[in-house]
Design a protein around this nucleic acid. Structure first.
Lengths: 104, 104
DNA sequence: TGACTGTATGTCATATTCGACATATAGTGT
DNA sequence: ACACTATATGTCGAATATGACATACAGTCA
């Protein structure tokens, strides 16, 4: 089972915090998945807060509704770059990004 | 002139802090470039601090010396994903990443 | 029930990013 | 001068992420 496949499973059913002991993910892989999920949560929270639909956000970042849905679900085919660009498009500053990554 | 080309120029000669008024970068593009440069700086600082060569870091992340050099120079062909993975490989926690992105 | 709105998921051709390699540049020591 | 080490830069075929599309699912309203 390849790492990308495992990552896909992880981001699906289970909370990652509880999933560390599952499957043979290296600590680095876990950290990256957790990072992606933090950004995913932050993105959804920001979008909802602004009362935008996924379609509206997609338009703002020149993407598509389906990709936004994948962003917010932590889908491993979504790059951190795209998550960052989307957050920035929603007005997030570097400090906002820092808070999303490592909440106080 | 395409945005990626402009980004390449920006990351070369000039400090971005001074380059906002150059070229027609949108605020979002500037923010993304600044983010990439913060990560680039953070990566180099961490690597040097650990007294590793670019070749050694490359081995740790299964990449190549040339790509590490590009990472550290903020080359626009380097993804934020790769920067994040490299920082994590050097032991950076989410909190460390947050500090790199938005220093106190 | 059906129509409508918003979100989720799978697939695919294209675009972007990848590691690898060659080669250039800079510094250090002999 | 040469040899050696570390870093920078350009290129390329292969790998990965992309937007777009179809379609499924869930909730709401009439």
């Amino acid at each position: 089972m390849r790492a990308s496949k495992r990552a896909k499973l992880v981001s699906r059913g289970w909370k990652v915090g509880d999933a560390k002991e599952f499957l043979d993910l290296s600590p680095e892989e876990v950290a990256l998945i957790e990072l992606r999920l933090k950004l995913a949560e932050g993105l959804k929270a920001r979008r909802v807060r602004k009362r935008l639909t996924q379609i509206e956000l997609a338009a703002a970042v020149q993407s598509s509704q389906s990709r936004v849905a994948k962003m917010e679900s932590g889908d491993p085919t979504v790059s951190i770059d795209l998550l960052m660009r989307s957050l920035i498009a929603l007005g997030a500053s570097r400090r906002d990004l820092a808070r999303i990554i490592a909440p106080k």
